[in-house]
C-alpha cells in the first residue's frame, strides 16, 4: 500500500527527536499510564498471596509476600510499549529479577517456554530466554509507589522488551514447559511473541 497519502492529514504530535528513536514503529508517547484489562480487577489479600514457580524445575518454589520482599531487589528504568499503540517513556519499576526466582528453582534443561498465570485467570506465554539475562522482573512498585491494583498489583510480571500484554498483571506464578502454549491474547489473534520493534501485534505480523 505504498504511496497512499491521507488527504489533509498533517499529524501534530511528531515525537521530539530524543523520543523518536525510542518509539517503536506505530507507537506514540503517552504521558499517562492507561489501564487495559479484559475483566474485573482482582483484589488479592496479601496474607493469601503466593507466587509460584513450577513445572520443569528441579525445585518447585512458592513465595509468600514477605518472602518475596526479602529477596535481593532489582529494578527497571526505561520504556514500556502497549500493543494499543501507546508507549510510556522513562518510567520505573522495582521488584525482583526473574533470574533470581529461576536460580532458586533451577530450571531443568528441557524447559524452553513459560506460561505466566495470574489471579483472575489471565495467562500469557513466553520463550524462557525472554525471561532470563536481566530482561524480566516481578515488580510491585511503580515510580516509587506501591503498584496499584488496576496496574497489576500486588505484583506483575514486567518484560519491557515485549508488548505489555506479556507483562502479566496480578501474577500468581510461572510454569516452565518443554513446549510453547499460547496464552489468553495469543489465542485470540495477538502475536505469539510480541516484539514491538518488529511490530509483532497480531497473528502473522
Amino acid at each position: 500500500m505504498g504511496g497512499f497519502v491521507s488527504r489533509g492529514f498533517k499529524g501534530r504530535r511528531r515525537a521530539a527527536d530524543d523520543q523518536a528513536t525510542r518509539l517503536p514503529p506505530g507507537q506514540y508517547a503517552e504521558r499517562g499510564f492507561p489501564v487495559l484489562t479484559a475483566g474485573p480487577t482482582p483484589r488479592i489479600d496479601l496474607a493469601d498471596w503466593r507466587l509460584k514457580l513450577e513445572g520443569l524445575v528441579a525445585t518447585p518454589r512458592e513465595w509468600t509476600w514477605e518472602e518475596l520482599q526479602a529477596l535481593p531487589g532489582a529494578g527497571f528504568e526505561g520504556d514500556i510499549h502497549c500493543v494499543t499503540r501507546w508507549s510510556k517513556l522513562g518510567t520505573s519499576f522495582a521488584g525482583v529479577s526473574v533470574d533470581t526466582l529461576l536460580e532458586a528453582a533451577e530450571p531443568l534443561p528441557s524447559a524452553s517456554h513459560v506460561v505466566a498465570f495470574c489471579y483472575g485467570g489471565y495467562t500469557t506465554n513466553l520463550p524462557l530466554d525472554d525471561l532470563k539475562g536481566g530482561k524480566a522482573w516481578v515488580v510491585w512498585e511503580h515510580e516509587g509507589e506501591p503498584l496499584p491494583a488496576e496496574h497489576g498489583g500486588p505484583a506483575r510480571l514486567l518484560v519491557p522488551h515485549l508488548y505489555l500484554w506479556k507483562s502479566a498483571k496480578w501474577l500468581a506464578g510461572l510454569r516452565l514447559l518443554d513446549h510453547d502454549a499460547p496464552g489468553f491474547w495469543e489465542g485470540l489473534g495477538y502475536h505469539n511473541r510480541g516484539d514491538p520493534w518488529r511490530e509483532e501485534r497480531y497473528w502473522g505480523d
Binding site: 503517552e30 499517562g32 492507561p34 501507546w86
Partner: peptide, 30 residues
C-alpha cells in the same frame, strides 16, 4: 467507570468470568 462498574458487579455477586471489560476513549490518565 470500567473499574468501578466491574468492581461493583463482582461485589454484588456476579461471576467475574462473565464480566468483560474494554477501555475506550482518551488514553491520557495522569
Amino acid at each position: 467507570l470500567v473499574e468501578a462498574v466491574a468492581g461493583h458487579l463482582v461485589a454484588l455477586g456476579h461471576d467475574p468470568s462473565r464480566v468483560r471489560t474494554e477501555r475506550f476513549g482518551p488514553t491520557g490518565v495522569p
